Simulated scan of single mutants.
Amino acid sequence: MEESYDISDPRVLKVVAHPLRVRLLGLLRSDGPATASELGRAVGESSGSTSYHLRELARYGFIEEDPDRRDGRKRRWRARHRYTSWDNRRMHATPEGREAVGIMQARQVEVLVQAMRSFDETGWPAEWLTVAGISDDMIQLPVEGLRELSDRMGELVHEVAARHAGRPDAVLVQVWRAAYPREQVIEAARRKEEER
């Protein structure tokens, strides 16, 4: 499996941003090769619907048939890349690109919310309850600082994953990283008031 699928065409990013397609691709990346029927049962859709969306993902290079795991007449699909990436600046150069990024980021938030709900409903042991979750910090950084933070967080994720790879007690863990500059709302309101 290749590391990343770097998308530069907003139309291709929109293809994967479809709610069902992003779920199917995520399952193939996390759980491995599967048939349309298996994926349909997993997401509560018909195999006809999942087949159509799998063919669309294949058409745009996100997935492929798994030649090593052919099941008679059943097609087994596998992801071609570990993750999907794009250059925000390049995408934001056009209205279509901005729209595609907005749709994709909304899908990412939906996946995060679903993962949180699933964790809460599953009943994980207490030791997982103490380490899993979400938090936020508010820090002041210049652009270079945010770039450094993002790069180092990515390096840390890969370093820790490599160190614990293959352990029998390891489970699949979803990790999200997000950082956005934020306008100081109160200060902006004061400026507006002073302009009146």
Rank of each mutant, 00 (worst) to 15 (best):
E2I: 14
Y5W: 13
D6S: 14
I7T: 06
D9Q: 15
R11T: 10
L13T: 05
A17R: 04
H18I: 09
H18M: 03
P19L: 05
L20R: 06
R21A: 12
R21D: 08
R21Y: 10
L24G: 04
L25I: 01
R29L: 02
R29S: 01
R29G: 02
S30P: 00
D31S: 13
G32I: 05
G32V: 05
G32A: 03
G32Q: 03
G32L: 03
P33C: 05
A34G: 07
T35R: 05
S37T: 15
S37R: 15
L39W: 10
L39H: 09
R41M: 11
E45S: 14
E45Y: 15
S47Q: 14
G48V: 15
T50M: 11
T50F: 10
L54C: 07
R55E: 15
E56I: 14
R59S: 12
R59L: 15
G61N: 06
I63C: 07
I63A: 06
E64C: 08
D68N: 14
D68H: 13
R70I: 14
R70V: 15
D71C: 02
K74E: 14
R75W: 02
R76Y: 07
A79F: 04
A79E: 02
H81V: 04
H81I: 02
R82Q: 09
T84E: 04
S85Q: 07
S85M: 03
W86H: 07
W86N: 02
R89N: 05
R89S: 07
R90Y: 03
M91W: 01
P95H: 08
G97W: 08
G97A: 06
R98L: 05
E99K: 11
A100L: 09
V101G: 00
G102R: 08
G102Y: 04
I103K: 10
I103E: 15
Q105C: 06
A106T: 11
A106W: 09
R107L: 05
Q108N: 11
V109P: 01
V109T: 08
E110W: 02
V113T: 07
V113M: 10
M116R: 15
R117D: 11
D120V: 13
T122A: 06
T122Q: 00
G123I: 12
W124V: 13
P125C: 12
A126Q: 11
E127T: 10
E127C: 11
E127V: 12
W128Q: 03
W128I: 08
T130W: 13
T130Q: 13
A132Y: 09
G133P: 09
G133D: 04
G133W: 10
I134N: 12
S135Y: 14
I139R: 12
I139P: 01
Q140K: 03
Q140M: 04
Q140S: 10
L141S: 01
V143W: 00
E144W: 00
L146C: 01
L146R: 06
R147D: 12
M153W: 13
G154V: 07
H158R: 14
H158W: 06
A165V: 01
G166N: 10
R167V: 00
R167S: 08
R167L: 13
P168K: 12
P168M: 07
D169Y: 04
D169R: 05
V171C: 07
V173A: 11
V173W: 08
Q174M: 02
Q174N: 05
V175L: 07
W176A: 03
A178M: 04
A179H: 01
A179S: 09
E183C: 02
V185F: 01
I186P: 00
E187M: 00
A189N: 02
R191W: 06
E193A: 14
R196G: 14
